[in-house]
């Protein structure tokens, strides 16, 4: 506080002066304002360049492959002869791993959100929340390693004919990775439910469990839906876990024990291979990237819309 008082004092000292001094200020103020505006425009520029870059580069692909073939084809073999450019196998691989991840993260994340917002004492919460944050901060390449060298061997004890690179192992670990996201977004929504509603339910003889599941959860449902959508979008865009553990064989399957390839893992595969610039193989990664970007963008917009909805309600 003493620091503030000093600043205020010098400010008064400076602002009592001659008119000449006052006249100089607006120029400096204007320059600063413009500089700050330029900073803010960097993010606008980023979005525009992402869209322009993806569209322009993907155009190189769509000059040779029709959009219809791309979106409806069921074989993806751009790196081999005969070349096929149907994205569906990559989409199914992506949705398969993301689906497994959500099946893990949604119930566990939701249950821990309920625990943290309705059950945990302050002291317990102060220990558990940072632990979840650590989990969220582990690099994905580490999760990939964990999936490949720990989870997969473990699962192969249960499913002996499972392939080393498989969707299940990658999906499970990805699920663990997004638990903190589901949990913290849902918890935010639950904490926003007014105390008075909980009191009303307790006053009617409801138990803690009934208050949590019959009052808090329904009232926070749009926040929970938002958490689900945003987590799904995150799982769809996740790259390293699937690149390491899920395989590189694009396959139109929903069998989690098989080796598949996701959209992101395909981009990694081509990036590693030093594919010559300007070939159709090279442009495929931008076509895949464009679809990936469109999918995640739509989900994020939808998720944010849901978040705003529950904020406005109370």
């Amino acid at each position: 506080m003493s620091g503030h008082r000093n600043t205020l004092k010098t400010t008064t000292g400076e602002s009592a002066p001659s008119l000449g001094w006052v006249r100089k200020r607006p120029l400096e103020e204007r320059l600063i304002k413009w500089a700050l505006l330029v900073c803010a425009l960097v993010s606008v520029f980023t979005t525009i360049s992402i869209v322009v870059m993806l569209v322009v580069q993907a155009a190189g692909f769509f000059r040779q492959v029709s959009v219809l073939e791309f979106l409806t084809g069921t074989a993806w073999t751009p790196l081999f002869q005969p070349q096929n450019f149907g994205i569906l196998p990559l989409v199914s691989g992506t949705l398969l791993t993301a689906g497994i991840a959500i099946l893990v993260a949604l119930p566990i994340g939701l249950a821990s959100a309920i625990y943290l917002s309705e059950y945990a004492k302050d002291r317990v919460r102060r220990v558990l929340k940072p632990l979840l944050e650590i989990l969220a901060g582990i690099p994905t390449v580490v999760y990939g390693y964990f999936a490949l060298t720990f989870v997969t061997p473990l699962l192969r004890n249960i499913f002996p004919d499972m392939i080393v690179f498989n969707a299940l192992s990658a999906g499970l670990v990805m699920g663990i990775m997004i638990i903190p996201m589901v949990s913290s977004l849902s918890e935010d929504a639950m904490i926003a439910v007014p105390r008075s509603l909980r009191n009303a339910a307790y006053g009617l003889g409801a138990t803690r469990f009934e208050v949590a599941t019959r009052v808090v959860m329904p009232a926070a449902i749009s926040g929970v839906v938002a958490a689900f959508i945003l987590a799904l979008s995150r799982a769809i865009g996740e790259t390293m876990i699937v690149a390491i553990a899920a395989g590189s064989t694009p396959k139109l399957t929903l069998n989690p024990l098989e080796s598949i390839q996701t959209m992101t893992a395909y981009i990694v595969q081509v990036s590693l291979g030093e594919t010559p610039h300007g070939t159709v193989e090279y442009y495929t990664i931008f076509a895949v990237g464009l679809l990936l970007f469109a999918m995640t963008l739509l989900m994020n917009l939808f998720g944010q819309w849901f978040v705003r909805r529950y904020r406005e309600k109370y």
Binding site: S196, L197, N199, L204, G205, A219
Partner: peptide, 17 residues
């Protein structure tokens, strides 16, 4: 059980949504 047999009405109306 206490709260089931002794009801309570609060300061601000708090119907469930």
């Amino acid at each position: 059980e206490v709260r089931y047999r002794i009801g309570m009405v609060f300061q601000k109306p708090n119907p469930f949504p």
